[in-house]
Simulated scan of single mutants.
Amino acid sequence: MASAIEARLSALNITLPDAPAPAANYVPFVRTGNQIFVSGQVSSGPDGFIKGKLGADMSVEEGAAAARRCGLALIAQARAAVGDLDKIKRVVKLVGFVNSTVDFTDQPKVVNGCSDLMVEVFGEAGRHARSAVSAASLPFGVAVEIEAIFEVE
């Protein structure tokens, strides 16, 4: 029988990507006790990295869509860590980095793309603490990178 979260993903017409492999000398997640710390997931889609700089060549809406893609990768990593997404008890915290100009101030609106996804998928358990900060640049020129902490059974 499919898990409740997998059924919700299906009902929302959301297909998770494969959990991305690390791009350097680190692991994609660490489980310690009842928490999973997921390494930063960069914005990428079916056609590769989603690149850009908010406030220069990307709109807030495009940035939020890129953040949503980070969220899909975070959930995929969580599934790789625990096997069954129903074992996720809570999204504890997201830390979002937005590749943006020095005068761009809508980082929270961009990272909402990921935050909104977590609530769509996990309901009240998807509500989380969060940071949304600017970065002068991000790996590979991506628009957004987000890391997460999940509480698990």
Rank of each mutant, 00 (worst) to 15 (best):
K93H: 11
E124P: 09
G40H: 09
P20K: 09
A143C: 07
D106G: 10
N99G: 01
I50C: 08
K109Y: 08
E124M: 12
V38M: 01
A65H: 07
A21P: 04
S59F: 05
V30M: 11
C114H: 06
D57T: 14
A56P: 03
E147K: 11
A11S: 13
A80E: 00
V92W: 05
T15E: 15
A132H: 04
I36P: 02
A80F: 00
E120M: 09
L9Q: 06
I5Q: 09
F140H: 15
T32P: 01
M58A: 13
S134A: 15
R127Y: 14
E153N: 10
F140M: 15
V152Y: 06
A73V: 08
G33F: 07
A7R: 10
G83H: 01
L16W: 05
G71L: 04
A143V: 07
P46R: 07
R79D: 00
E6K: 07
F29N: 00
S59L: 06
V152A: 02
A23T: 11
A135M: 15
V102Y: 14
L16P: 01
A148P: 05
V82I: 15
P22L: 12
D57K: 07
L94Y: 10
M1G: 13
A2N: 11
A78R: 00
V27Q: 15
V133Q: 13
D18R: 09
V142Y: 10
A21G: 11
A2Q: 10
L9A: 03
R68I: 13
T15V: 12
G63S: 03
I146Y: 04
A73E: 08
P46K: 13
A24P: 04
F104P: 00
L117E: 01
S137P: 11
G55S: 05
A76V: 09
L138D: 01
P20N: 11
G48D: 03
L16T: 12
D84Q: 04
A66V: 11
G55Y: 07
M1K: 13
P20M: 06
N34K: 14
S43W: 05
E151L: 01
S134Q: 12
L9P: 02
E124Y: 13
N99Q: 06
T15R: 13
M118S: 05
L138G: 03
D106T: 04
S3M: 04
V38G: 00
S59D: 08
A11D: 15
